[in-house]
Design a protein around this nucleic acid. Structure first.
Lengths: 211, 211, 211, 211
DNA sequence: AATGAATGAGAGTTCATTCAT
DNA sequence: TATGAATGAACTCTCATTCAT
């Protein structure tokens, strides 16, 4: 937000919603944190602006100084969460020496994230019905990473050849469903080791080049 | 819509409202059909009882003679849709001579169902947030079928050994995500052949016993 | 409102808002009466749906069974009031034997209406800012009546020739302003006789054929 | 905007907020100009203080240093606009050699003003509902001018005798309605010549002494 | 003299649900 | 068995105004 506003200027499309000062930035952050908590607890549709504002300790009207509405803050929140998931996965994967190891670490990071923040994970999934575009973009970015890794591995003859994009989506489906079953629906706080290992064996067989 | 609901059957808790006469049964059926149409078109939260009643050609008050509320009819509808999906998959799979063929036919049936009824598929997915229990039950039944098939195949040495349940959930994840990507988000009315074939190769490699 | 609704029919553009029964018709009427009172007392912008509903003795939600919103009921109300004014003027004028007498009686009826319902008159005037089209239509209908009377009188040589439409608007301006000044802003309940007579002389000179 | 407002002048009651310095006077002027623009564009009720402040390049809080509220600045603005209209009419009329010519020039000036500033004209009309007193005062001042001119003309035997006040209000009604019809509702940027001429003939017949 | 974040009452509106008929 | 008018709480959102800085 430039501090050289031309008087009477119209400032383009995105209204410069609040947050021009330090204090404003803090309020905005508080609202985002409150939204995370409320959406997590109640889901998108039972959450309300009033509840979010209340949780942030501000008046309802204040909310609209910073966000255009419920969907707006949801989008921003989901985008933020998605960034976190992707970063966790990419960071973990980058420590792998071999492709297989990277894959393993990536999956592990994903499962760890969802296990540590099951509410957030649910929020992200719910985006399918609220901001399909945002969720799709998120998945596509993960897939793009997967796919390029797979392509390189194919080139090196490490894995079976095939359409890397399809393979990447299939891999993501595996991770999502295992996460859904053993974290959201499971009764432990963590994915059981043998489930994780079985999943990794499944994935490795699915990818490995047949001798 | 099966008209042979045993009163007080599996549902147990909910008293079977209305529908004690021939006419009542017809009204109930009309409401369920209307709900399918309205939920499909609008999604759970934008659907309203008044719209469902209207689509069924019935007054709003009449709705409550047959269902306890919105969630109630949604649950019943999702259960019904799930039965249809499972039946389509099971029927198809039963025509397979080999395990691999059955698997292939089952996946094909799933994709065909979602391609032909994308709205219904979305309704089922949405159940995750509205009636998690119902969706979980649905998935578990599919998994149970998969898993027992896998177990037999393992016993016969046709596929790699492992925890059949984990494998079954992984398989389902693959199907779900490929369906999401190429049917709900795709721009064709059908899953592209090469995507389907690539998916099947992925699945077969993932399961096949290593020589 | 036809009582042969096809089940599931969509009923065209105008939603059949309530009033299918005797009781509904009564509620609708009560709302319209309440609106007249509230708009009259508070003006358009300070009136609120809740106040109207309250004055009608119904819950806020009930209002929306019958009207699409504030502007909708305002339009209907203004249209109704306009019909009354026009009818009062036309009825009165039709008793005139000569053109001049008809004119005199029409003006008189207009002033009487505004004097008896100053609040309504204000509501109609306010329509200029709320439903300009409606007000314009109202004026145009009055003007059309005036103008055709003037044209005939011109043909008979009773009055000066000229563009009857312009003359008609000018006449209406006279009536409106005199009404505004001596009824809305005046301190009596009726237009003073000498003002009325002076106005009629003004009008007659303005129209009369010069010898 | 005259910058020579005598503090505590005619307005009397309202303390002249802010504007005690050179800079303050400039801010006040900017706010008034902004208000003219915003009210003109949006009308009274859709205009908001925040928009006015924005258009003036000033923070919302600053507004209240200079005006007591929305109605306050509206009143002042309307008064200013009215001064402009009256001045335009009086200036024009003063160039007329005969009474009839003065009248003609006055009407012309009024129509020209409204044609050039239709938005302002609307703002003035809207004052009927927002500050009736201000509008009434405006009209009364115009009427006073008309009336004294008419009285003199009567004394000189140039026009029919009668109550000059009633005649003056009638004249103003003619001008207002013709302006409303052909400027606010018309499709040209100017009043058509034949309408103007017809109107003037109407007015002259209405006033002229019968031989 | 100026700021701009914060307020909070109140607006319009929706809809699952009830109940007298 | 069916009706449909009525409910009223809850929702999103606006904006004139205040006040600590």
């Amino acid at each position: 937000m430039s501090d050289t506003r031309a008087p009477g200027g119209v400032e383009g499309t995105a209204p410069p919603r609040g947050a021009r000062t330090e204090r404003g930035a803090r309020t905005r952050t508080r609202l985002l944190e409150a939204a995370e908590q409320v959406f997590t607890e109640l889901g998108y549709h039972d959450a309300s602006i009033v509840k979010v504002a209340e949780a942030a300790g501000v008046a309802p009207g204040t909310f609209y100084l910073y966000f255009a509405g419920k969907q707006d803050i949801f989008d921003e929140l989901v985008e933020e969460l998605n960034r976190r998931v992707r970063k966790a996965m990419a960071d973990a994967a980058s420590h792998g020496r071999t492709r297989g190891e990277a894959e393993r670490l990536g999956f592990q990071a994903f499962f760890r994230f969802t296990a540590e923040h099951p509410g957030l994970y649910r929020v992200i999934r719910q985006a399918e019905f609220v901001s399909p575009r945002a969720l799709r973009g998120h998945y596509e970015r993960i897939v793009a990473g997967y796919a390029s890794g797979l392509q390189e591995a194919m080139a090196r003859g490490e894995i079976a050849t095939g359409d890397p994009e399809v393979l990447a989506w299939a891999l993501m489906g595996v991770g999502e469903m295992i996460g859904l079953r053993w974290i959201l629906w499971g009764d432990t706080d963590e994915i059981p080791t043998h489930v994780f290992e079985e999943t990794m064996r499944f994935v490795q067989r699915a990818l490995d080049a047949q001798p």
